[in-house]
Structure formats: structure tokens, C-alpha cells
Design a protein around this nucleic acid. Sequence first.
DNA 1: ACCGAAGCGGAGCAGTTGCTCCGGTAGGGT
DNA 2: ACCCTACCGGAGCAACTGCTCCGCTTCGGT
Lengths: 215, 215
Amino acid sequence: MTSRPAASPVPAAPAAAAPAAATRSDAARNRGRLLDAAAGLIAERGSDVDVREIARRAEVGMGTLYRHFPTKEALLDAALEHVFTSWAAAASAALTGRAWPDLGRFLADALTRQTASPGLLDAYCQALPGQAGNTARQHCRQQVGPLIAELVRAAHESGELRPDITAEDVSLLLVALGRIAPVVPEPAWRRILHVTLDGLHTRAATPLPRPDRPL
Amino acid sequence: MTSRPAASPVPAAPAAAAPAAATRSDAARNRGRLLDAAAGLIAERGSDVDVREIARRAEVGMGTLYRHFPTKEALLDAALEHVFTSWAAAASAALTGRAWPDLGRFLADALTRQTASPGLLDAYCQALPGQAGNTARQHCRQQVGPLIAELVRAAHESGELRPDITAEDVSLLLVALGRIAPVVPEPAWRRILHVTLDGLHTRAATPLPRPDRPL
DNA sequence: ACCGAAGCGGAGCAGTTGCTCCGGTAGGGT
DNA sequence: ACCCTACCGGAGCAACTGCTCCGCTTCGGT
């Protein structure tokens, strides 16, 4: 950590999935454990996790943690990148080609995922006012952004998404709904999503799933 | 916290606006200063403020702070109650009697207010998973809840709000939008609000304010 | 003017956090 | 089988947090 020769402006994450050179097997295993533990704890409790707890759950010591990642933030960062990447992959694989249902399903799936990991968006939104260096957000944008853009383009083409809506609008709506999804019962946020989709549709106002019988 | 005799489930908030007995003038002044400082800091940075900083901004010492409020939480609580009360009063005074525009204006005003105080909703939503004792939320519900209920009732009666929407839905939407309003430029969240209102309207899909020219 | 008590302030305590240090351990090329 | 080296682990440091303690000040009734 004292004098790094040169390299890119991104210091950490040399290869999350490609150890490449001859790394010791236990080192690779511990790195993976740390990433999993960090991701799990972020999902459960948000991004203000105790490093000791990460190490404990990963069943490694503090020295190991800080050998693999220069700082807590770098660890969380790497974990988040992995999470966002796998989300984008799963969402992309779930597409059927029918634009409007795909959009709705993508949003519903994203919110379900968010329900299981309340802390994810917290990490994403953390330090938003200051911005400047929120890499979680950048990772999400890089991984999921193109997918949303494609969904929006296709839905525009099918004529069901009102033309004045941008991919940015959809991303924003997703973040907004994602902030409440984990803290209310699922039927509640499904109602909200339904209303939102109605607002997004060219011709709007379809009946809600079930107005008074929640499930 | 050891053994409370009986009393109501709300322990704190003896009298935020009614010192009643013969209180010393400086005490009352300092109490007000603490409330203002706390509210200001919560608005700016959310509910994880340093008590020392509250005391510093209020220009009082730590002893004074803890003389007036038994715990940090109690202080934040009292400050939040005051904030929510004045919000409800202002919003209630702004009503014109025309239901649908009133609802839209109420939401827009709430979001503007939220933009100026990003930390407010953080305090409101904090510890939501555990729930159990989030008094900020209770205060908001008590103060603002009836107002939203009335807005929804009137908008239903006017026939413009789709009948399957409940006051709970509107509250939830407000929270969701409030979570993003402070972190994006105002035109962006106004677009989102517009879409949402379209989704709430019986016959939907009116043109957005300005699709591509943000302001 | 006087005086008792309520009020004031900030140094200090205990707990928690992110991070470092260094003796011991075990991997893997030879 | 050997040994060098990268790696492991957890005790310890410094900074920060919420909160308490206690000597001094100031209010306000007489």
C-alpha cells in the first residue's frame, strides 16, 4: 500500500472473477468469502456495517480483510459491483421480447430483489448530496443503465410507453419505489407500482390488482 | 428505561409549546434554540447528528442539552414533531377547495419542502424494518395523515382521483417521491410527480411539462 | 441588595468504529 | 521433504459517539 507503481485511477478490484496470476488458493477463497459476507451484510443492514462483523461472517481475521482491500469502502464497492452485475445479468436473461410486459416485470423483479436486500439502495443513495465518488451508483448505472435504456426504447417502439418518458425517468421511478418496497408489505408496493405503470402507459388507468383485499 | 410506572405508550413530549409553570426565561430560550438547531441539522444531514454539534449550533453546553431532553432521541423527536406540525398547518392553509389541484399542489409543496430538508424523510424512515417506536413516523401520521385522508376523500368525490386509490397509497407515493426529490434537480422530480399524478387520475395521460427541455 | 435554587457549561467516561502491526502459519515450487 | 514467502489472525491505536458529573453563574422573588 506504500508505493503503487502507476496503474489506472481505479486502485482496487484488479479481478473480482479472474485471479489470473498464480494466487494462493486460500487467498482466493478468502477474498470470495469477504465479498459474499460484505454483500450479505449490506443487503441486510445497509452500508454502515462494522468491518469486524464482515470479517467474522467471512470467518477471516481483520488482517486478511485489509490485505485484500485497502479500505472498507473498497470492499463494499467490490461487493456492490458484483451484486449489480449479477442483477443485470439475471434481468437481461428474463426478457421475453414483448416490450411492455418486460418493462413491468423488470420493475417488479427489481423491487422484489430490493425487498430481500433493503440495504442495497441505501448504499446506492448514500452520500448522494455530495455525490463525487459514489462508485456504487456508477456501477449500477454502468450495469443496469443500458438495460433500462433498451427496455425503454423497445417500449417506445411498441407504442405502449408514452413517448415523453425517458430512461432517466424510469430509473428515477425505480429508485423511488425501491426506497419504500422493503419497508411496506408486498401488496402495498405492488399497488404503487401498478399506479406508476398506469401513469407510464400511453392510454392509462387499468384496474388495480385488488383494491381492498390486499392479497 | 428500567421501570416505567404506567402512563401512555408515548413517554416523551411533556409540553413542547406550553412551558406552563414559572420557567426561567433563559431556560425557555435555550430550549427553543436546541429545538431549532436540532431541526436544522436533521434537515441538512439526516438524523445521525452529533449531539455536540447540536449544542454548538444552539450555543449552549452539553449539560443544558441533557437537562432539557433526557436523550438525544427525545430531542430529535420533539424537533420533528414541531416540524411536522407546522408543515401540516401550512399545507392545510394552502387548500383552495378544488380537490384535484389541491392534491397535486399539496404533493408538489411537500416535495419542495423535502428538497430543502433532505434529512427529514431519513429521520422518518429510519429504523423502519424494526419499526417499533419510530415516533417521528407516528407524529407525521398524526399531523399529516388526516390532511391526506381529507384530500383523498375530496378528490374521490370530485371524480378525478381513481376510486381504487386509498390515502395510504398517496402517503406511500409521497414518501417514495420524497426520497428522490432532494437528490435530483427539481425538473426531474416534477416530471416524476406529473407521471404519478397521471397514474392517479381517473382518465390519465396528460402531456408532461417539458419532455426534453428540462426547465 | 441579597440569597437560594435552578440553570449552565465543558471536561471526562465508556462504548464503538475504521484501521495497523507483527508474530505465527501454511502454501507450493523445487 | 524443504524452505522461502505470501498470507493469516487478532490485539491494540486513534478518533468519534452518546451521555454524566460537578463547580460556577445567573435568574427572580423578597
